[in-house]
Amino acid sequence: MGRGEGAPFSPPGSETAVKFDNQGDGLGRYNIFSYQRSGDRYGYVPVGEWAETLSLNSDLIHWPRDTVPPSQCSDPCARNEMKKMQAGEYCCWICTACEPHEYLADEFTCAPCSPGQWPTDDLTSCFDLPEDYIMWEDAWAIGPITIACVGFISTGMVFWVFIRHNNTPLVKASGRELCYILLLGVFMSYAMTFLFLAKPSPTICALRRLGLGTSFAVCYSALLTKTNRIARIFSGVKDGGGATRPRFISPFSQVFICLSLISVQLVTVSVWLLVEVPGTRRFTLLSAGRPSS
């Protein structure tokens, strides 16, 4: 009988039909046994058969601890694991854990999150890490803010006294115009506290760079100009100048000298801002748990 030409038949004295597939091969018939303990002996117990279809008597099968074991090549992967398939296999895989900064793009792929991001709890996507900077309500910010507010009040009171007694001989003799410039510098110094506590941005960074040095330059320029004026006046008297009035001690001259000194600082900072444009960057610091940005 050639291949593919076989027809089913029953051997003499048998009720079982012999069949062939389309390749001419006989169809398999198998008896299924379960190796069990019966009393003090172990032996095989027939529990079913295979003849084109499965016929199985599950009640005759005794499982350890009465638990049916799963029929699978590999166990399901954990929540943070991906399936790494074996070559030529479709039902068997190796579970590989994803890195802490990776999420499951699909059941076979762990994909890293972008810088500044972290996987969600279910590992289905990533979320942006919250920005960590000094907040207005932080304890580290309340102290400087309190000191700055006290400084504003004190500077405002001194300024009010000068305005109230603006034309008195005492205020004029103290260098009225330079005192106002000095008070302005002190006010700017206290105002810098709020810029350094504000959320970083290109504008805030530019104001920090410009204001910090300029506030001190205003204070020191006023003090330097005033000290130089007094020194030259007393130096002229000591040298026997008598009625000779030193040059450049008028209020206009003193203000001009002071502003000239301040302009040096402003020009320097302006060039710095042009050469190195201020901006912000995010840094992700990895810690034992979840990173912060």
Rank of each mutant, 00 (worst) to 15 (best):
S250F: 07
C77A: 07
T225H: 02
I61A: 04
M1N: 06
Y30C: 13
N80E: 07
K172Q: 09
Y42P: 02
L197I: 12
R232I: 08
R229L: 03
L195Q: 00
R65H: 15
P11I: 02
P8C: 09
P115D: 04
Y133E: 05
T227V: 07
L212I: 04
R232A: 08
G116V: 03
N228E: 10
L223A: 08
M192V: 12
Q23W: 11
E102L: 00
P200S: 05
R41N: 10
L170E: 14
A87P: 02
L178P: 00
G240Q: 00
V47I: 15
E49L: 07
N31F: 06
F248A: 08
E137R: 07
L195F: 15
F283T: 14
C95E: 08
P76M: 06
P100F: 05
E137A: 04
D132N: 11
R65K: 14
I262T: 06
L285R: 09
L104T: 02
M1P: 03
K172W: 00
P64Q: 12
W140T: 15
A198S: 15
A87K: 14
G211L: 10
A17Y: 02
K226G: 02
R164Q: 12
D66V: 03
N166C: 04
K226A: 09
V237R: 14
R79F: 06
T155S: 12
R164N: 07
G2M: 14
R229C: 08
V150L: 15
V255S: 01
